[in-house]
Amino acid sequence: MANLRASCISFLLCFTTCINLISSHYLPENHVALFIFGDSLFDPGNNNYINTTADFRANFYPYGETFFKCPTGRFSDGRLIPDFIAQFAGLPIIPTYLQPGKRKFTDGVNFASGGAGALVESHQGFVVDLETQIKYFNKVEKSLRQELGDAGAKKLMSKAVYLISIGGNDYFTKNSSVSDEEFVSMVLGNLTVALKEIYKKGGRKFGFPNLLPLGCLPYMKAQSGGSCIDELTAIAKLHSAELLKTLVKLQNQLEGFKYAYYNLYQSFTERLNNPSKYGNSENGLLLLHERFK
C-alpha cells in the first residue's frame, strides 16, 4: 500500500508540473489565476510535505478513493471546493505550494494547510498558519515578477481570484479565559492583516465560505454523546456575522476590493440533516468530517 501511495503522489506531482509548464508559456487575455489559502476544507496535500503527525495528514486510505483513486492529502474521499472551482474556471487542478520540483505559478497555487488557523498559536508547530501562508504568497509574487515582469505580474495578480477558508481551527483551540467577542476579533484581525497584504500585492477579488456549524460536526457530536456542542456553533455564527461586517468595511476602505461570500453553514447543515438527498450516507459524512482540520 505504501508503494501504491508513493506511485500515486508521484503521478500527481508529474501531472500538475507538466500542466503548469505548458500553461505558463501562453497566457490568454482573459486568463485568471486562482490563489488558495486556509485549512483542511481547501488543503490539497500541503501537509504531506511538513513535519507533522498523522492527525494533520490525509495521505492514507480511505481518503482519495473516489476520484483520484488514491490518497492525495485532501481531507476528502474526492475533490475539494477549490478543485471544482478550478474546473469550472477552465483551470487545471491547482497544485500545492509545498510540493517538490520545478513550479510555475501562472495558474495560481494552493497554500492551505489542514489544521491551520488565522492565529499562529492554533496547532502551532503542526501546520502552516495563515501568516506563513502569506509569506509563501509573497515569495510567489516575487517569482511571478521575475517570470512575467512587473507589469505582467501586476496584471495577473489583479485579475486573480483569492479563495480563503480559515477560522474554524482557531475556535477548537480557543482559550476559555477570553470572551467569544474578543477572540473573534483577534481571529478576524489576523485575517484582515492577511487580506491587506494580498491587496497590497494587487489582489482585488476574494471568495470566502462562512464557518461550518462547528458544534454539530459528526466528530464533535460523537464526542458529546450524539448532541451538538452549542457553544462551538454559537461562536461559529458570531464569526460569520462579524466576517461579513469586516468584508463590508474593507470594501469601503480599499478601492476595487470585491468579495463573494458563500453560506457554507446553511449548505452543510442541509446535507447533515438530509444526507441521502445528496447521495451521501451518515457513515460517509462521518468519514469526510471525522476531523475538521
Rank of each mutant, 00 (worst) to 15 (best):
S176M: 12
D107W: 02
Q223W: 13
F257W: 06
L98M: 05
G149F: 11
N280H: 09
F292C: 08
L148G: 01
A151K: 10
I22R: 04
L288Q: 10
I19R: 06
P95D: 10
A116F: 07
L254E: 12
G225P: 01
G202L: 12
L163C: 00
P275S: 02
S240T: 07
E181P: 05
E147M: 06
T269I: 11
F56Q: 01
N30M: 14
R291S: 13
F208Q: 08
H239K: 06
Y199S: 02
P275M: 07
D77S: 05
K237F: 11
L21K: 10
Y136G: 04
T52A: 11
S185F: 10
F111W: 00
A116Y: 04
Y97S: 01
K159G: 10
N280F: 07
C216F: 05
Q146C: 12
G152Q: 08
T269M: 05
A6E: 14
T96F: 06
K174N: 03
V178A: 14
Q124F: 12
F35L: 00
L287W: 10
S40V: 11
K258Q: 15
A260F: 14
L250K: 05
G207I: 13
S113C: 05
D170Q: 10
S143G: 09
P218D: 11
A116N: 03
F35G: 00
E197P: 05
E231V: 13
K155R: 14
K139Q: 12
F183S: 04
G203L: 12
N263R: 11
L264S: 08
R5Q: 08
L211Y: 01
S267A: 13
K221R: 03
V193H: 12
L238I: 15
S24Q: 01
E255M: 14
R57A: 12
G114H: 03
N48P: 10
V193G: 14
E270L: 13
L214H: 02
E270G: 11
A151W: 09
Y262L: 13
Q87P: 07
R204F: 09
I229D: 08
N190S: 11
T66L: 09
C14S: 15
N190V: 06
A58W: 03
N175E: 09
G117E: 02
D150Q: 15
A86C: 08
G125S: 00
A116Q: 04
T246I: 02
A6Q: 09
I198Y: 07
Y219G: 13
L148Q: 03
S281G: 06
N169Q: 01
K155I: 14
L148I: 04
E182V: 15
I229K: 05
K135P: 02
I235K: 06
T173K: 15
M220S: 13
C216R: 06
L191M: 03
T233C: 03
